[in-house]
Amino acid sequence: MPDDYRQYLIRLIAMHGISEIMGALPEKEWVPRAPTLHRKLAILAKVQDELGHGQLLLRVAEDLVAPLGMNREDLLNGLFQGTIHFHNVFHMPAPTWADAGIIGWLVDGAAIITQGMLAQGSYAPYCRALERIIAEESFHIQHGESICIALAEGTRAQRQMLQEALNRWWEPLIFFFGPPPKSELTKHQDLGLMYRLRNKTNEELRQRFFHKYVPRIQALGLTIPDPNLRLDKETNTWHYTQPDWSKFKAILRNEGPMSRARLTLRHSAWEQNRWVREVLSTRAAVAV
């Protein structure tokens, strides 16, 4: 395996795995506050799935770092040392129940577009993990759709809560697929294309997202907070306002709105659960 291929995979898969775990944090806030028992069970199931995705991906990443003398603990510590980043969307706050709905519907919707492409990549162990993950993502999306449709059909206050959540998440969703071409941030993309770990650019993925979700968002009577968003029918491309990509770069440096809080939360979970890891790695001596 070429070195740069391995390095690319480690970076990609470790970041993906850690992001699944970090992604559970904004949603887990809503487990105790879910409006009904059914909703509570469903969001709990989703949170558990996301942590399971983290387990699958860390397992794949672990095999890749093993020849370098590293293990899972090194990967998990990479998050605290700032060498492994977590996905930009998980640096954002989720202040209302509608945010939980938008995350399931549109953030997981965006994720499945990226993951569907990555599942056709050249590294089979990652593709096998993605196949399992994607099967569960379809449930996540419908779980999110179900929350959003219920709110859209609800009272004026509920519709407004949904609209405000969309306003909050629109820019993170544009950021989701990464910067457009000819940016200093896209060098990484080229290696992925070369090694057939991806076959679409960031912009192609974003266009797919627009094609799929803009009509659906509008069907729920919501307004997309971008007056310049429109489909050019001749070229079949969506025009949209370029967000401020320096904000995106700041998030990558863990300077997003919730970066610190989420890292602290993750760190305290890691410390508080240390005793569980200890118990699992010892067999108590039994007096005979």
């Binding site: 558990q48 399971g52 387990q55 699958l56 790695s281």
Partner: peptide, 19 residues
């Protein structure tokens, strides 16, 4: 799939939970 565990018992629990 595969998983990381410190004993067969733990592996069986994780297998159920993960897969």
């Amino acid at each position: 799939f595969s998983l990381l565990a410190s004993s067969p018992d733990m592996a069986l629990i994780l297998a159920k939970e993960n897969f």
